[in-house]
Amino acid sequence: MPEQRTTLSTGPGRLLVALYGLFALAATGRSAVQLGMEPGRAPLAYTLSLVAAVLYLVATVCLLLGGRRARVVALVAVSIELVGVLGIGTLTYLEPQLFPDKTVWSHFGQGYGFLPLVLPFLGLAWLRSRR
């Protein structure tokens, strides 16, 4: 009998794979352009863009892989993502001078239709339901 794997990429998971994949692409692209063009202009913002890109990539891959371990890794990545978007979102309003250039999480993801704010909640809800 093959082991029953926790599938994370069917049903609602398919939509999440699409969204996380899209943001992995957007954040990776953004950080690559920012770091490639003028890395010294806004080091904090650019580092955070890179962190966001890695988290989205990890979440996407884990959703596609499925299984118990991938689910736990995805939970960690999405939790950090939630803290990140809430923290950076708040900071960009309180201390805008820290961010001379934007990240995906600036102003709670305003530049991306606030999807970066909604996404971790959807991700956590889905991962919890697949226990």
Partner: peptide
């Protein structure tokens, strides 16, 4: 993004698959 969305929608023949097309 359009062909990828279409492919996902055809694999996932449910509301969620169609929702992927909306994202696309």
């Amino acid at each position: 993004v359009v062909p990828v969305g279409a492919a996902l929608a055809l694999v996932e023949r449910s509301r969620w698959g169609t929702a992927v097309l909306l994202v696309a």
